[in-house]
Each structure stands twice: as C-alpha cells, then as structure tokens.
Design a protein around this nucleic acid. Structure first.
Length: 115
DNA sequence: CCACTGACGAGTG
DNA sequence: GCACTCGCCAGTG
C-alpha cells in the first residue's frame, strides 16, 4: 500500500482538483493550502504538478492558486499561461500588481466548513 | 538505480 | 526583500 495516504481509491490528483474547484470566484488560495485540504500536507509541489497536467478547458479554476507569497508562480517561471492567469484573476476582481502578486490578506480564500 | 528538474514551502542569514 | 538550503514527490533520461 502506498504510504499512509487515506486513499479511497481516488488518486491524489483527483482530490487536489476537487479542492481547487471549491475556491470561489474572486478568491485565491495557495498550493500548500490545497495540499493540506486534500490530505497531502507538505506536498505543495505535487499540487503544482497536478495543475500542470490540466488541459485547457478543464473545469478546474487553476488560476486561483498562487504560491505562499501571493505570487503567480507561472508568471515568475516565464510561462505564457501566466498571462492567462493574470487576466482571469483581474477579470474576477482580484488585482494583480506589477510584481505578479495578489493580496492574500484581502483576497485569500477563507476556508469554511460546508453546510 | 542515479541525477536532475520543477505551477512549492518553511527556515535561516 | 533576496539568496540559499533542505524536505517532498512525480516524471524523464
């Protein structure tokens, strides 16, 4: 059995996508937070890997995931998708500054138990 | 099997 | 704020 993961039969990627889908419009969260909520504490890197595997047109709002510093990792990595992420965020009402950063304090996703 | 590379993060200086 | 190190893990050669 692969580690002490609470594997319910679903892959880690599926759980990661499920969490990201819960991030509301106009809000952002971090890779590390997604990892924790997905039951993969400390595996922030795997979250990035999972999002990188997404294909264009997926229902997963990957653009709402930024790094712990509030920066758009894609833009920082020089990826063209960084432009798309920036565009989508601004269009949702999340301001992105010239340093490719967003305010986690003001626009960070406030996780709340589902009702 | 080993080395290297990332959409990462926390810690240190 | 910046530069580095170390921990994590999947994918590649």
């Amino acid at each position: 059995m692969p580690r002490s993961r609470p594997s319910n039969g679903e892959s880690a990627y599926d759980r990661i996508y499920a969490i990201v889908r819960r991030v509301p419009r106009g809000r952002v969260t971090t890779y590390g937070e997604v990892a924790r909520l997905a039951g993969l504490p400390g595996r922030a890197r795997q979250v990035g890997y999972a999002l990188a595997a997404l294909r264009d047109g997926s229902s997963v709002p990957w653009h709402r995931v930024v790094n712990a510093q509030g920066r758009l990792s894609l833009a920082r990595a020089g990826s063209p998708s960084g432009i798309t992420q920036r565009l989508r965020l601004v269009r949702e009402g999340v301001p992105v500054d010239g340093g490719d950063r967003v305010s986690l304090a003001r626009f960070g996703w406030k996780v709340r138990a589902r009702t």
